[in-house]
Design a protein around this nucleic acid. Structure first.
Length: 873
RNA sequence: GCGGGCAUGACGGAACAGGUAGACGUACCGGACUUAAAAUCCGGAGCCAGAAAUGGCGUGCCGGUUCAAUUCCGGCUGCCCGCACCA
């Protein structure tokens, strides 16, 4: 026996290997490397304070891929950074007087140390933090480039304004019409804000989704719905005079239903509605009421269709004598289409509801196939299906599709006030991206406002425009706005005193290009180095939570296109492969008084069924709540530090990848982590026994039957793991490692060790090494320690991935299941290359088959060679 | 309301392309070792009947296609997710 300890001590072993990897720069990646590249990236963390189990799962997955691809000969880029701007730092500053920068950098230091204790194969020399001027300087450069190309612009827009905190709130920050922090009633305000012109790329962002073959279908669909393309037409309706304007343009996707029109409805924010409201207090009241309802999500669900009859009329485009009333309606949105619609109650549910409320009636113009138009009526729902046009003059008999084309074709060549009465129009739900935030802890928008010259871009040589450190959070609002001197600056154009823009950028901007910055994070003068960024991108495998399915991923796709337009890189799609991992969930515990208890505050009594749980503090009964995502509020979190401290990082990583498929939620259980810990020890013992038995094995190519049996087990597992790694099915990889471990353990036990030949020793050593290489990407520290025990040179992290010998796995004699009437009743052992005649003869000899046939002739025998036999009686 | 997904033992899950349902793990049961427990090792286990051999049933429910269906098709039920007055 060697001096190997009987128990594997992760606490001692793990830091040792982490140091060795660091010293050897094992995971540092150079940009000058001829091997094929592979870029693995996990969504970078927000430095909230400490890592959580979700991080452990996310980064364990990425690390497995990075380590395997490295072993397979790729030049792997696997970097880490910090999404470091954002509200929590400001909130902390308000709460305990800390300074956002100090708070953030302290958190980064803590979390870096925690991530390093996980043993991740990360190139830490490329670490970036988005709050660092060396990062956001380039973001300011790109903003100016985008400004120059018209991709960034200013416009007045309605925003959720919190009158207590003096800031704009995102929609998600408005809860039941109130600010999430201040609880103040949120107002709709018109504010001039900065926007990115994401709508310029709407068509391309939509179409290119089809090319993202290695993205989950679900994410592509969500983005598709978000972009929301629809084909329709703009139709102009002439207003009867007197009226403040001459016409109303509506957007419709159903021009075919034009003869079913009963009214026109416009949004309260439509220019016509505003003009009318200015002179009509009642209409103004109605518009105000619409605005109030607009802020409350709950109210929206139950909101009735309401309207205000303006008294104005328009003429039908195909019949000037046919007049339609014009309403201001609460269900018409100003920021979609033209803010005006024509209402066809028979074939649109909303229009139906509205018409019912105001007694406007309906006219059926589409009749379902096979239904008599004279008897077809509507009870309380509009008919939105297909059919044939009726009651529609020249359209009668056409399909709605044909009618749509016909209506637009005719109106295109009909003039109204000297212009075509209609035109085809594609519309998108996607809006331009508002990036202005009235916040301190974000990237300053590099422009200067001059009374004489207007908006002036900050001179490039003045970048980065850094945040002033001396700000106060005593008062609500934006500290940059209140700072005594920061915003005072001379106009770069005329030299007169001017003001800096005090808005900072949405933090989603920061995370929209960090993946590009990682490729050359030390370029001081440019955001990217073209030669380098174009070689590394796209990211081959991106991994993160499904919660970013729309915003972050869509913004990144847009920003990459913007960077291409401004010559900072040369491609459109940043992420070739995307994987969305599930959450880490845990039971919740609730005391009798309803308070949430943490797993550390309870005692579980397993002796009874169902389990009973008691409070450690006072022994009172505790109720088991639902299994939910780990969260501070439910107190069902497990601290990765505690787990790594008591079980080691490898055990935590192993458990996080076991059992549940990676895209589903994984339930954290004490039994699960214990099981993983037991398996670590089992592997350690097995590898130790193999080392003792095989350390003096002479190399040989002459393997006997038993030796080949061992080799077959190892190579078989290797083939399976390879297949499942390619599809990121880590839970199956884990199962294959368990299987091989059990097999090798059994085989080793059956060997008469003193009598064993060199071939058996060599085969077992080979199998042991394969086993280590299969689990090392998941448990890298244990992998190194075992690799060293087996007398291997260098590190397992530096070893080449083993090549499977497929000839070992193919059997000459195989067992084929035999079914009788589709149910398995026997196994047939035959030669692999047996003919169907031979198989049929052998099958008829089987006891089970004879019994079932009872002397009769089989009705049919289905033989699928090497797969199955089915005897039909 | 619209769009999408999922449903398999006590539990997490496996079953590549229609071909042995339940791999692997957890929990459980039995045995060995131990003064004992833990750990470890060996064995058992879908459900029902039977001493066993064996038979019947079985992948949410109903129906269909097929020699053969967890897998394909039609219809339902339940749960989860996304969007939500988008004309």
């Amino acid at each position: 026996m060697t001096g190997r300890p009987e128990r594997y001590n992760a606490r001692e072993v793990e830091p040792k290997w982490q140091e060795i990897w660091r010293d050897r720069k094992t995971f540092e990646t150079t940009n000058e490397d001829g091997r094929p590249k592979y870029y693995v990236l996990e969504m970078f963390p927000y430095p909230s304070g400490r890592i959580h189990m979700g991080h452990v799962r996310n980064y364990a997955m990425g690390d497995v891929i990075a380590r395997v691809m490295r072993a397979k000969g790729y030049n792997v880029l696997h970097p880490m950074g910090w999404d470091a701007f954002g509200m929590p730092a400001e909130n902390a500053a308000r709460l305990n007087g800390s300074d956002p920068a100090t708070w953030t950098y302290e958190n980064i230091a803590t979390m870096r140390k925690q991530l390093q204790s996980m043993g991740l194969s990360i190139d830490w020399s490329r670490e970036i933090a988005t709050c660092d001027p060396s990062y956001y300087k380039h973001q300011q450069t790109m903003f100016l480039d985008m400004l120059g190309k018209g991709l960034a612009y200013r416009k007045s827009a309605k925003v959720n304004w919190d009158p207590v905190d003096h800031t704009v709130l995102a929609n998600e920050q408005v809860i039941d019409g109130r600010g999430w922090r201040s609880n103040a009633l949120v107002e709709q305000r018109e504010l001039t804000q900065w926007f990115f012109k994401i709508t310029d790329f709407a068509e391309d962002l939509l179409e290119s989704l089809d090319s993202l073959e290695r993205w989950p279908e679900k994410v592509r669909l969500m983005q598709k719905n978000w972009i929301g393309r629809s084909e329709g037409a703009l139709i102009r309706f002439a207003l009867e005079q007197p009226a403040p304007i001459g016409e109303i343009t509506v957007y419709t996707t159903r021009p075919d239903t034009i003869f079913g029109a009963k009214f026109i409805a416009i949004s309260g924010d439509h220019p016509l509605a505003r003009q009318l409201a200015a002179e009509n207090p009642q209409l103004q009241d109605f518009v105000d009421e619409c605005h109030r309802i607009g802020t409350s999500v709950a109210a929206l669900e139950t909101a009735e269709k309401k309207g205000f009859d303006t008294g104005l009329k328009v003429a039908h485009p195909f019949d000037r004598e046919w007049k339609l009333p014009v309403f201001v309606a609460n269900f018409v949105l100003m920021d979609y289409g033209t803010g005006a619609i024509f209402g066809c109650p028979a074939h649109d549910q909303r229009d139906f509801d509205f018409a019912k409320a105001y007694g406007l009636g309906y006219e059926i113009v589409v009749c379902p196939e096979g239904v008599d138009k004279s008897t077809f009526t509507l009870a309380d729902a509009a008919y939105e299906g297909d059919g044939r046009m009726v009651n529609s003059r020249f359209l009668d008999g056409m399909t709605p599709n044909e009618a749509q084309n016909e209506v637009v074709r005719r109106l295109e060549s009909t003039a109204l006030f000297g212009k075509p009465c209609a035109e085809r129009k594609v519309n998108f739900k996607l809006r331009d991206w508002g990036i202005s935030r009235q916040r301190y802890w974000g990237c300053p928008i590099p422009v200067i406002h001059c009374e004489a010259c207007g908006v002036v871009p900050a001179p490039r040589e003045s970048l980065p425009i850094t945040l002033p450190p001396d700000v106060s959070f005593d008062a609500p609002g934006n500290p940059l706005e209140r700072h005594p001197s920061w915003k005072r600056v001379a106009c770069p154009k005329c030299g007169r005193s001017a003001q800096r823009e005090t808005d900072t950028m949405d933090t989603f901007v920061d995370s929209s290009w960090y993946f590009a910055r990682f490729t050359d994070p030390n370029n001081q003068s440019e955001p990217t180095t073209r030669k380098i960024v174009d070689r590394w991108l796209p990211v081959d495998q991106y991994i993160g939570g499904i919660e970013h399915a729309i915003l972050h991923l869509l913004y990144s796709r847009f920003f990459t296109r913007a960077m291409k337009e401004t010559n900072h890189l040369g491609l459109k799609e940043p992420f070739a492969g995307l994987f969305t991992q599930g959450m880490v969930v845990h039971e919740t515990y609730r005391s009798e008084n309803g308070a949430w208890l943490s797993p550390a505050e309870i005692r579980i009594d397993d002796a009874t069924t169902p389990r009973q749980i008691f409070s450690l503090k006072d022994g009172s009964r505790v109720e088991i709540g639902p299994i939910e995502k780990m969260s501070k509020s439910k107190r069902n979190t497990i601290d990765p530090d505690d787990i790594i401290g008591s079980f080691g990082a490898d055990t935590a990583r192993w458990f996080m990848l076991s059992d549940s498929p990676p895209d589903r939620d994984v339930i954290w259980t004490e039994e699960g982590i214990q099981g993983a810990a037991r398996f670590v020890q089992k592997l350690w013992r097995l590898i130790g026994e193999i080392a003792d038995f095989s350390s003096d094995a002479k190399t040989t190519n002459d393997f006997g039957e038993f030796a080949n049996h061992i080799r077959k087990a190892a190579h078989g597992a290797l083939v399976k793991v390879d297949g499942d790694l390619a599809r990121l099915r880590f839970n199956r990889c884990v199962a294959h490692v368990y299987e091989l471990t059990n097999e090798l353990s059994g085989l080793l036990g059956s060997i008469d060790q003193p009598a064993a030949g060199d071939d058996v020793r060599a085969a077992l050593l080979e199998a042991g090494k394969i086993l280590v290489q299969l689990f090392a990407p998941i448990m890298p520290h244990l992998g190194e320690e075992c690799w060293a025990s087996l007398g291997a040179s260098r590190l397992v992290a530096e070893a080449t991935w083993p090549e499977a010998d497929h000839s070992l796995i193919v059997d000459n004699v195989i067992s084929v299941p035999v079914q009788i009437n589709g149910k398995k009743r026997a196994d047939l052992v035959v030669a692999r290359d047996a003919t169907t005649e031979e198989i049929e003869r052998a099958v008829l000899e089987l006891d089970a088959v004879r019994r079932a046939l009872a002397g009769q002739r089989p009705g049919k025998i289905v033989i699928v060679p090497q797969r199955i036999v089915n005897v039909v009686v």
